[in-house]
């Protein structure tokens, strides 16, 4: 379905060798930030997907190989991070929001 599951979907039952996973954690002052919004933008900057972070600040996308931008929105801050993803190898990103 099209709705965004908090924290991104579980990897249970998913053949990760066929997926291009971009996942990570959002934190501020070393503490996880739940309920932040992480947007996945493609190589041209176009929106592709968005998920709210879980209570432990986690998020996950199933993308395609290539260059992507992660844009994190939280009350009072917006932060962009560049990532390169490849199939079968999950990319882990630690997003640290300014204090």
């Amino acid at each position: 379905m099209c709705s965004a599951t908090v924290g991104g979907l579980s990897l249970e039952g998913i053949d990760v060798t066929k997926e291009t996973v971009i996942q990570g954690t959002v934190s501020r002052d070393g503490q996880p930030v739940g309920g932040a919004y992480v947007r996945l933008l493609d190589g041209s900057g176009e929106f592709t997907a968005e998920v709210p972070t879980s209570a432990t600040g986690q998020f996950r996308f199933f993308a395609a190989p290539g260059s992507w931008t992660l844009r994190t929105l939280a009350p009072g801050s917006t932060l962009d991070r560049q990532v390169v993803a490849s199939q079968g190898q999950a990319v882990d990103v630690a997003v640290e929001l300014p204090a």
Binding site: M1, C2, A4, T5, G8, L9, I14, D15, K18, E19, L40, T48, A49, E50, V51, R60, F61, F62, A63, A64
Partner: peptide, 12 residues
């Protein structure tokens, strides 16, 4: 046709 679903979902 590069993706079959939004990128927060599995693609199969």
């Amino acid at each position: 046709g590069k993706l079959l679903a939004p990128a927060h979902l599995p693609q199969e």
